[in-house]
């Protein structure tokens, strides 16, 4: 960095991003080297368990059989049709629940009396096992995708809601003083300051919400359905088709990872000013 002014600006060099001296490949990219190794070891243990202890394929299928089954699924139409159903239920529920949570939280933060009034019920519902309402949702919304979307929505709502409430209040006293000195209106302070300060919290909430609403969609399918990944899984389980069950579990794990990865990418793009090595933890523990 060269200073453009001739005048000396003591001790004011631009702060360089700390770069560590060159480290070994292993230390720099642990996920590229160590993670595949761990997978290999796990696969080895899996195979060894079957060979050494003679575990029945009905209890634990051989990895190769699972991959064969996965390949069959990936090359046929059935998986994609059901994948689309589940991902839609999840996507719609996640979006509805998150948007509703942001709106309701933003309104409540601006009406503190109402927020206080609601808080005991919010805490009660937060700690309530929301999965337990799934059978009721089927009664209310029928057997189609609606009850699954509803469960995904309910499960997505609370983690986002709680984080938005905390996030919108997380500006510092100095930041609020600054806005007061500038004579910013409440509305300006909200949009210029509070929304921006809340974004990292909102993303922390979204990450939890994504896992929960995927869980909600699949649980909903467990309870009553004729399509979706949850339905496929139950079918194979009932037929003692264990290879298929394991293959589907791998598919679900991949969806979860993909959603995590997409949200992480959005997080880094949108909240570019945060130090993402110290990711914000969700403001509060959540129960499903």
């Amino acid at each position: 960095m060269t200073m453009t002014r001739s005048e000396p600006v003591l001790n004011d060099a631009v702060r360089a991003t700390p770069k560590r001296p060159s480290q070994s490949l292993l230390r720099r990219y642990p996920t590229l080297i160590v993670s595949p190794l761990i997978a290999l070891v796990a696969l080895g243990a899996w195979v060894a368990a079957i060979e050494v202890f003679g575990v029945e394929p009905l209890i634990l299928p051989a990895p190769l059989d699972v991959f064969d089954e996965l390949w069959l699924m990936l090359t046929g139409p059935e998986l994609y049709r059901n994948l689309f159903v589940t991902v839609s239920e999840f996507g719609i529920g996640f979006a509805l629940g998150s948007v509703a949570a942001v709106v309701v939280a933003a309104v409540l933060v601006r009406l503190p009396v109402l927020e206080k009034g609601f808080s005991p019920y919010i805490i009660a519902f937060q700690n309530f096992p929301k999965i337990a309402i799934a059978p009721m949702l089927v009664t209310w919304f029928g057997f189609g995708p609606a009850p699954k979307v509803a469960l995904a929505t309910v499960l997505a709502f609370f983690p986002v809601f709680v984080n938005v409430i905390v996030g919108l209040k997380s500006s510092t006293r100095e930041q609020r003083d600054l806005m007061r000195v500038l004579q910013a209106s409440e509305w300006q302070t909200f949009w210029i300051l509070r929304v921006k300060v809340a974004l990292p919290y909102i993303f922390a909430g979204l990450r939890v919400a994504a896992v929960f609403s995927l869980l909600g969609a699949i649980t909903g399918e467990f309870i009553s359905s004729s399509e979706g990944l949850g339905y496929m899984l139950l079918q194979r389980n009932a037929q003692l088709h264990v290879d298929g069950v394991f293959a589907l579990l791998l598919v679900m794990a991949t969806i979860g990872l993909a959603v995590h990865w997409i949200l992480g990418l959005l997080n880094r793009k949108i909240i570019f000013w945060e130090d993402h090595d110290q990711a914000k933890r969700p403001a509060q523990e959540e129960s499903v």
């Binding site: 510092t172 100095e174 930041q175 003083d177 600054l178 007061r180 000195v181 500038l182 004579q183 210029i192 300051l193 921006k196 909240i271 570019f272 000013w273 945060e274």
Partner: peptide, 17 residues
């Protein structure tokens, strides 16, 4: 606070975004 006041705090309080 008034328009004809300017204030500098102990921390710069710049908005990081």
């Amino acid at each position: 606070p008034r328009k004809d006041f300017g204030m500098v705090f102990q921390q710069p309080v710049l908005l990081p975004w």
